[in-house]
């Protein structure tokens, strides 16, 4: 285990990058998810079609292929951003598609009467969605969204193949130097758990706080 303890600073730096990558991507994925989910339940047919297209495209492209496509393809059409920014973009767009579907399933659990009542007292579609339907919908989607964050944190390891030096690439670099693969692998897994276990705990806490009896 010396290989791990001698390289705590490297692990710390890798953990920091993975955490930053996961957090920023998650916030953006939530925003994208809200927008796409509202498209999908919108009364405007073209918006619904756009929402459906987004979900089907980004949910079904393998993540590694999506990374390669963005990192090597976009610079050819003039979009040159840092590798970290590419990783954030890909991870948030990918996870956003799943968030949208989780939200939509939550929206479907809110009785139609709620939306009808909101519209009948004169609220607009936006007001109905954001003031009446979504707050109720969110309660049922806390667990699925928490799971999506955990999946996102682990998916972020694919960024190691696309020039982001995060936890997994730190592990790759260290294994070449130290030839102590197994201890280093355990150390890496512990680092991922440092992110994902608290995320699970936060999810459970939030779920308890917002739970209500129907």
């Amino acid at each position: 285990m010396d290989a791990v303890f001698d390289n705590l600073d490297a692990f710390g730096a890798g953990l920091g990058v993975t955490l930053k990558l996961s957090m920023i991507s998650f916030v953006l994925a939530m925003l994208i998810g809200f927008v796409i989910a509202s498209f999908r339940v919108s009364p405007v047919a073209p918006l619904r079609a756009a929402g459906l297209t987004y979900v089907e495209v980004f949910r079904n492209i393998p993540l590694t292929a999506f990374f390669a496509l963005a990192v090597f393809g976009l610079p050819k059409v003039g979009l040159n951003i840092s590798f970290f920014a590419f990783a954030v973009m890909v991870l948030s767009m990918y996870t956003g598609a799943f968030v949208s579907e989780a939200l939509r399933s939550g929206i479907n659990t809110v009785a139609t009467g709620q939306a009808e009542a909101a519209r009948s007292i004169g609220l607009t579609f936006g007001q109905t969605l954001f003031l009446v339907v979504l707050p109720q919908a969110l309660r049922t989607v806390v667990q699925p969204i928490g799971s999506l964050f955990i999946a996102l944190a682990k998916n972020s390891s694919i960024a190691s193949l696309f020039a982001v030096i995060e936890l997994t690439s730190t592990f790759d670099l260290l294994t070449d130097q130290e030839s102590a693969t197994l201890p280093l692998l355990l150390g890496t897994i512990v680092c991922y758990l440092i992110i994902t276990l608290p995320a699970g705990a936060v999810t459970a806490y939030v779920e308890r706080r917002v739970a209500f009896k129907r």
């Binding site: 990192v71 610079p75 050819k76 040159n80 590798f83 696309f162 020039a163 030096i165």
Partner: peptide, 16 residues
């Protein structure tokens, strides 16, 4: 760091 050297070649082509 990328996964393969052909990706390095692609990144060089792009000026990355």
């Amino acid at each position: 760091l990328f996964g393969t050297y052909t990706e390095c070649a692609e990144a060089m082509r792009n000026g990355q």
